[in-house]
Design a binder for these strands. Sequence first.
DNA 1: TAAGTGGGTGTAAGCGCTATCATAAAGATA
DNA 2: TATCTTTATGATAGCGCTTACACCCACTTA
Lengths: 353, 353
Amino acid sequence: MQKKTRRRQSERVRVEDVAAAAGVSGATVSRAINRTGPVSEAIRQRIEKAVVELGYVPNGAARALASHRTRVIGVVIPTLENANFAITAEGAQRYLMKRGYHILVATSDYDPDQEWEQVQSLVSHGVDGIVLVGAQRDASVVEFLRSRRLPFVVTWTLAGDASTPCVGFDNAEAARKLATHLINLGHRHIGVIAGLTRNNDRAAARLEGVRRALSDHKLVVAREMLLERPYRIVEGQLALRALMAMSPAPTAVVCGNDHLAFGALIECGRQGIRVPEQVSVVGFDDLEFASQIVPSLTTVQVPAEEIGRRAAEYLLAHLAGEAAPPTTEVTVSLIVRDSSGPPPRASRAAEDG
Amino acid sequence: MQKKTRRRQSERVRVEDVAAAAGVSGATVSRAINRTGPVSEAIRQRIEKAVVELGYVPNGAARALASHRTRVIGVVIPTLENANFAITAEGAQRYLMKRGYHILVATSDYDPDQEWEQVQSLVSHGVDGIVLVGAQRDASVVEFLRSRRLPFVVTWTLAGDASTPCVGFDNAEAARKLATHLINLGHRHIGVIAGLTRNNDRAAARLEGVRRALSDHKLVVAREMLLERPYRIVEGQLALRALMAMSPAPTAVVCGNDHLAFGALIECGRQGIRVPEQVSVVGFDDLEFASQIVPSLTTVQVPAEEIGRRAAEYLLAHLAGEAAPPTTEVTVSLIVRDSSGPPPRASRAAEDG
DNA sequence: TAAGTGGGTGTAAGCGCTATCATAAAGATA
DNA sequence: TATCTTTATGATAGCGCTTACACCCACTTA
């Protein structure tokens, strides 16, 4: 049982150890590893060899403390359960990983208070930038971030405010196109199963877009034809049932997202309501199943991964001091599939007559 | 334009500032904030007041450097696109958030090399612990973690090795029950659409479980009846089509997960194959849609969030020096729904005869 | 009264790294 | 050869925090 003097608490290898092994100073090791200054080829190789041999892994905390950068980007999304946000997070992660960055993921569950806590917590952890979803939030959050000079970017929407960096698209306009598609098919009686619009500007904008499309054609969303529901399949089912129980029943239903639309479609199947012959159903997001189910779902395709990637891109550009355009609009497109078609004759006649 | 001497680069408030404002030393402020030593009530209040007034937010990097703990747990999962892993990550996140911890999420895309890179990267960032998915990986990864005394936990499976902490369930056993359910219904011709088993011990174990169930009844999985496919809806469709084109076609199909099963169900619908009358289809995971679709899917329910929560729980207990049981088995259960039933008479007769 | 006890506080030494500055060596210019 | 660059390297001062450790001061206890 040999008992040697314990010099250091942990036997982790540090820059100094690598430096000693390579016969150079710590500063040079740092420069070689971070490519932050000139290092001769010969020495670089000696250092690399020493790094491998000693199994050196840099200490992020020390690095962050000395350099004032953590190489971590915080991502605050409503929930990871929604594939879209998960994909956005993954898009950011993939982009950042290649550049030596990580993402710290936090979820707010669509609750502004939780979002605020998460932001504070991320800041305290020392993230270099933050990705947020939606532009609607208390001004104090933005002020807090601004006062700390912490770059952030809002996603999944276009910020009304031009000074707020964002990566997204016009939810209202996309929803307007979606509803207009139905109107052009001849629908006049349109039901809406919207997401919960409270604290969710995307859901609110989509609803607003539908309203706009109707009003463009001198139509309105009847009060009883508008249901707001959480984004769950089962909610879509229940809502569709409620809508179809009305008289006259709508000939088309616009859903706040694909989950709701999927539920609506399932309920139609259960009740033997033919889609699109008896009722058209359209969704929003174009999740994986939308193109596969029968009937395939007419929806709006959103490049979720691209949103994450571009948000990360913006942040890194900003951190590098490069001029980055504050607003990035991604392309969303109406994908017309089998779940939408002309309204049944009877109700069209009723409308036209 | 007054021009004051710039003392500090950043105007962030530090412990020292809080200390000065409260008329105490930095050490006391630290103790008060971290509840890491006795502080009189009067002083604690003065400090809290100063913290709020100055808007003090601790610097995580400095804290980590001095205390050797980052309060961050790394989570490496195959992909965030699979709702299950996203939910597991979220489960961990929710648990940790309440305890002042964060999660750093990294995805490996089912690739061992990427996983290894991500682990190194997380370690370099300085996480306090790591959550991994699956027990199958190069021994060097485990050695690396062990050598650094970095606690980790393997999830979604039970580690064969008793010394490896894990939170999960026996995939093979669950799949065996699932297949046995089919056999008990009278099926003898069973097709399998497995996930890709390479580098995926869960997928491999599930397949093994099906094999075991069949061999328990002196049956085997015919070579041409076994297809390995990526976990995508469309792959399930294609595979089902291939399986049903054979003769004799299987009377039941076991799918590696719900995505594949969903695709299989969709394809049955397209081809007018009635489920379960003509063919039974079963999945694994019990995702949201499984209970909602028509026919509802017989599958294995897995408590994905619980897995994440318990993994986090284990890690925190371990970090706190508490004795934590290395193996946590979560309960999975066979959920029999409408997609499974007895085989059609014809083929049963053919078998029995 | 002397010695012990323990809560409450301050002092100061780092944690492991980066970044500034100084310096040395090598080449370019006059 | 003397001077100016340019390039490569080392010495060193923190980054903002935690955490021994020392210390002081009320209290006990004998």
